[in-house]
Design a binder for these strands. Sequence first.
DNA 1: TCTGGGGTCCTAGGACCC
DNA 2: TCTGGGGTCCTAGGACCC
Length: 409
Amino acid sequence: MKTILHVDLNNFYASVECMYDPSIRGLPVAVCGDVELRHGIVLAKNYAAKAAGVKTGYTIADAKRACPDLVCVPPHMDRYMRFSAMAKGIYSEYTDRVESFGIDECWLDLGEHGDGVAVADEIRARIKSELGVTASAGVSYNKIFAKMGSDYKKPDATTEITRNNYKELLWRLPISDMMFVGRASERKLRLYGMNTIGDLANADPLLLCRLLGKNGLLLQNFANGIDDSPVCGTYEPPPIKSIGNSTTSPRDLLTEDDIRVTYMALCESVSARLRSHSMKCGTVCIDVRDSSLRVITRQKSLPSPVCTAEELYAAATELHRSGAPRGVRIRTLGVRASSLCPMIGMQMTFFDDETRLKREALSAAADGINARFGDRCVVHGITMVAPELSSFSPSDDRTVAPERFEAYV
DNA sequence: TCTGGGGTCCTAGGACCC
DNA sequence: TCTGGGGTCCTAGGACCC
């Protein structure tokens, strides 16, 4: 029988920061993204609250009051990438089937290997001594149960979930502990008396289908340990389906210029990422969130695929003009490129006029300069109209787009 | 207590064509 | 000219994950 491991690096960001700064070891550490530094509000308040040992929903200031020792440090994405890659290096000594799930989690397919628990314990011990980070591991015969095993006991523990013990271990857990049961599904299931994973496992499939669609049946299968999805190997990462960036601005966007500047900065980033993959996109989508937190999305298919900031910008601002509500205070804008296709080997079309070809060449040249001298060395003039709105840098953000992650491993 | 950002997938409704 | 059905594509929004 197949043995699958799921390894979760505990409290990853803060642990890595402690490795770089011994003086904060042993203290509660919260890694705070640049967003809350810019906004004064608290993106990472959950992290801060968790580190401070208080309930979430507190601001960093609140967390500091509750826990005067709390250390807030800025994020260092490069450090997390390096540690993540080192952990993956250890995993790959045991199998070539290692699938990342975010920056700090991986599945390992050990094949018919006999003693998954022994391997998991060995890997955890090595991570602890070589990286200085504790890990929790789940061992099971499928991916879902392996993942739930690593969540079962944290930190620094291994949990094995077998065909014999899964009912005893998992079925008594609250329904929200089931993977893919979020807030909305939890509410629906509880309304019908399904409060535990066991309730879900034994529910009427027709009812589940009515409540959650095909997802309902999938969840019931998972609760019964039916999951034959494979662990994708390192060398076959899933293809990228879309590339996007969004930003919550340091102040409400009020003028046309504010909006234009922000869209251009987003389109510069998205288009550069598209080109770094040698991709073009056939669809552009914008997200607009106003100060009442209402979100609208608008998308359009393009007559032919594009990859330059100018063309993305034209589509995004067109969508905004025709679809975004007027007279509202805008907090967040986002641009996403989808319907991706490879740049090379594409047939020239009627739309590939000389202007476009020149623009693409210019973009490639700017990419080269930015790669050599740093992000945002070459930008569009319009972004200088309001530098405070365009100076955000997706590459410094705490979150990890899959392709950036792959670049490190 | 829903706060930020990057993703994926699903669903429902409408347009359009045959 | 109208009506019905099937298939496909597009769009908007929601839900979920980290």
